[in-house]
Design a binder for these strands. Sequence first.
RNA 1: GGUCCCAUAGCUCAACCGGAUAGAGCAUCAGUUUUCUAAACUGACGGUUACAAGUUCGAGUCUUGUUGGGAUCACCA
Length: 603
Amino acid sequence: MNFEHSLKEKIAQALLQLYGITINPNELTFQETRKEFDGDFTIVVFPFIKQSKKSPEVTATEMGEFVKSNSNILTGFNVVKGFLNLSINDMLWLEYFNSIAKEGNFNIMIPPKQDSNKTVMVEYSSPNTNKPLHLGHIRNILLGHSVSMILMKVGKTVIKANLINDRGIHICKSMLAWKKFEHGETPQSSKLKGDHLVGKYYVIFDQKYKKEIEELMKTGSTEEEAKKQAPIIVEAQEMLRAWEHSDAEVMALWKMMNTWVYEGFEDTYKRLGVDFDKLYYESDTYLLGKEIIEEGLQNGVFFKKEDGSVWVDLREEGLDEKLLLRSDGTSVYISQDLGTADLRFKDYPTLNQLIYVVGNEQEYHFKVLKIIFKKLQKPWYDGLYHLSYGMVNLPSGKMKSREGTVVDADELMQDMVQTAREMTLMLGKVEDFTEADAEVLFHKLGMGALKYYILKVDAKKTMLFDPAESIDFNGNTGPFIQYTFARICSVIRKAAGFDTLKSFKKIPAPTDRNLMPKEKEIIKHLYQFPMAVDIAATQYSPSIIAQYVYDLAKLFNSFYHDNPIVDADQIQTSIFRLQLSLMTAETVKECMRLLGIEVPEKM
RNA sequence: GGUCCCAUAGCUCAACCGGAUAGAGCAUCAGUUUUCUAAACUGACGGUUACAAGUUCGAGUCUUGUUGGGAUCACCA
């Protein structure tokens, strides 16, 4: 039984005996005592003064007295206005620390929760196959991957899914441009990554299209007419129809170009260090949804208009009527999503949650999607969750692929690694590294900087990226945290040189030492880890973990600066501090793993 | 126009259910290295939390309004 809970029970007891207030101990919440006051936990007594009929100060003092004299948890308390600050016996902190520091006991820090035996699918990335990935995708991918890791950490079974948008008019655009304007160019011949090659033709299409529109407008067409009549777009639409009829030539071209793109994406995913358990292709799923539409028509949830189009009326929900099927019987975007959601719950019968990592511009879409499933009375409708994240903007505003202002994912990663390389060489950190090891390090650092930079920001917020300013490596950054880890590893290597210290892991640390303030702060922060993970999991928010691990690293660096860890004359202290350092390192590593960031043992 | 989201230090970001004097980093300035990695540490500077009212013991956080920014409301995806 942990002391925090015992303490809550004592406080509940105090409230009952002193004031006749009945409260469930679990409903009491502590906040961490602020640094400027003495104490570990703080309880706010304002909510009780109505019933205690005494001033906040008196109420707090009486409660403190009661708890102190009726248990051995506290060594003292103090009262500031309505805040009761409680000081926990160091011994209890040390006992807690020993319990987590035991070898192989790391996972006890996350107790299994009752609702943890759930299967959840996290869909992320979900790229179009007509252009390479950019910074916006990176945010999506890192979020999806990290959230998956966090959910696994709290015991859920996670299926990482990717729905690849491999069909449609935009795909035909790059196909058509390649067909018309290429000169046998392939990834091999051009030395271009497949996705970039295809993206190049998508751009070429757009240029030609624009030119045709201009010419048509010169001959008197309106812009709207021109956009519809431009020969190249007409041809692309023909190609889409041919694709839908499985025209052999078009299919062959489509398969070839998609293969190029997949190879390119695979490479990007690999460098990002992410993967998927299940791939869905829109070319397989785009016709789904018609069954559901039929179902909805049968039970009167949807209705058909005279022209044959199918709609759902969402005016009761404060929305509008929404089209689900065109008058020509073809499906629209949302009908596909209706089908694919249904498919997933069929594919995975144990699935009870489906998280879509999709930008906030699609909030309306997912709102509609969920309401429709509710109307259809699908039992799992409540398990649908749109993990909506904000855009990544540039100082100049939105990234626009047509204006060439997108920050390319591959280029950005390359730049990050290059910056890491320059920085590390300048600091002279890799003189005893082999060239291959150094490259591995540069990659870890560059990617660490990038990933941390993105994940530390609350997902729902729009964030800014300035390409002119390179992502930092000092301060609140990935490399700072990586550095903290490497430092600890270095200390532990040093300890291995002392006979009395080298097996410090196995020596039980004493529980009777007086903790120094900075030692205690670290233990207290370690104590918060399970809660941080829990909050991150319930809020689907990697930024909680990023903030947590940064604070931990900062605490440790300050401690490290002030106190010698390996000291042959102070064996007991050294052993304790080595254990504290190791525990910090493992927690740092675990947090970074949850963020998808690797930590180096030397840097 | 309707609906939704956002607004915190010069810049980029924090702040768990409403809790104490709103915190970090960058930038600027001043310090710290014969000691385990200075990608570090310590300090200074920097704020009417866009504005106005309300709710209450207490509001960056909740409510309403105003201003400014963004998204969305397609027989596009």
